Amino acid sequence: MEQIMNYVKPELIVVAVVLYFVGVGLKKAQAIPDKYIPIILGAAGIVICAVWVVATCPLDSGQNIAMAIFTAIVQGILVAGLSTYVNQIIKQVQKTE
């Protein structure tokens, strides 16, 4: 967990929490097969992180635009992975063996 936290921007941790609850909601709604939930969370994470990047970074050159796209994708994947990781930790702790 610490390793992941070293790479996720602190201001985007809240996105992981939001994605966790979105995933729980999708699971309980049973409207979408479970195998698609991580993909949906990944896409949602990228979109939310892209909004944050556009709002906080200057997009005045090609290099800045490329960096913004890269940052949005990487951070989106990381926060989605973090939310899935937390979900799995909770499931594993609740198991009785």
Results as ranks from 00 to 15, higher is better:
residue 54 V to H: 06
residue 66 A to D: 05
residue 18 V to L: 15
residue 79 V to H: 01
residue 5 M to P: 00
residue 94 Q to E: 11
residue 17 V to N: 00
residue 74 V to C: 07
residue 11 E to K: 14
residue 21 F to E: 07
residue 89 I to Q: 13
residue 73 I to W: 06
residue 37 I to S: 01
residue 3 Q to N: 08
residue 90 I to A: 11
residue 66 A to G: 04
residue 58 P to K: 12
residue 22 V to Q: 03
residue 60 D to A: 13
residue 94 Q to R: 14
residue 78 L to H: 08
residue 81 G to L: 08
residue 94 Q to D: 15
residue 19 L to Q: 03
residue 29 A to Q: 06
residue 33 P to I: 04
residue 67 M to D: 01
residue 85 Y to T: 12
residue 33 P to Q: 14
residue 80 A to G: 10
residue 1 M to Q: 13
residue 80 A to Y: 01
residue 96 T to E: 09
residue 90 I to K: 13
residue 4 I to N: 06
residue 6 N to E: 15
residue 90 I to Q: 05
residue 23 G to I: 11
residue 67 M to I: 05
residue 85 Y to K: 08
residue 66 A to F: 02
residue 42 G to C: 14
residue 74 V to W: 04
residue 85 Y to W: 15
residue 2 E to N: 13
residue 62 G to P: 01
residue 46 I to C: 05
residue 87 N to V: 01
residue 65 I to Q: 04
residue 59 L to M: 15
residue 80 A to I: 01
residue 47 V to S: 12
residue 93 V to G: 09
residue 12 L to G: 01
residue 44 A to D: 09
residue 87 N to P: 07
residue 86 V to M: 07
residue 60 D to T: 08
residue 73 I to C: 05
residue 34 D to A: 13
residue 32 I to Q: 04
residue 79 V to M: 05
residue 5 M to N: 10
residue 53 V to P: 00
residue 51 V to Y: 11
residue 14 V to P: 00
residue 94 Q to V: 03
residue 49 C to I: 00
residue 74 V to R: 07
residue 15 V to E: 02
residue 34 D to H: 10
residue 84 T to R: 13
residue 19 L to N: 04
residue 58 P to H: 13
residue 72 A to K: 08
residue 59 L to F: 02
residue 6 N to Q: 10
residue 93 V to R: 07
residue 86 V to I: 12
residue 47 V to R: 01
residue 54 V to K: 14
residue 82 L to E: 03
residue 67 M to A: 14
residue 53 V to N: 08
residue 88 Q to G: 03
residue 51 V to W: 06
residue 97 E to C: 03
residue 75 Q to S: 07
residue 82 L to K: 03
residue 30 Q to C: 13
residue 37 I to G: 02
residue 50 A to V: 07
residue 80 A to M: 02
residue 97 E to W: 09
residue 13 I to T: 12
residue 58 P to Q: 05
residue 59 L to R: 07
residue 65 I to K: 12
residue 32 I to Y: 06
residue 45 G to I: 11
residue 44 A to N: 09
residue 29 A to M: 05
residue 14 V to Q: 14
residue 29 A to I: 04
residue 74 V to Q: 11
residue 56 T to R: 03
residue 73 I to V: 15
residue 5 M to V: 05
residue 28 K to V: 09
residue 91 K to F: 12
residue 25 G to V: 03
residue 50 A to T: 15
residue 30 Q to F: 09
residue 53 V to F: 04
residue 42 G to E: 01
residue 82 L to M: 14
residue 70 F to G: 09
residue 79 V to G: 13
residue 89 I to E: 07
residue 33 P to A: 12
residue 4 I to T: 06
residue 73 I to R: 06
residue 14 V to L: 11
residue 71 T to H: 03
residue 92 Q to V: 13
residue 15 V to K: 02
residue 45 G to D: 11
residue 23 G to V: 09
residue 16 A to I: 06
residue 13 I to Y: 08
residue 33 P to Y: 14
residue 90 I to H: 05
residue 12 L to C: 02
residue 50 A to H: 04
residue 16 A to S: 15
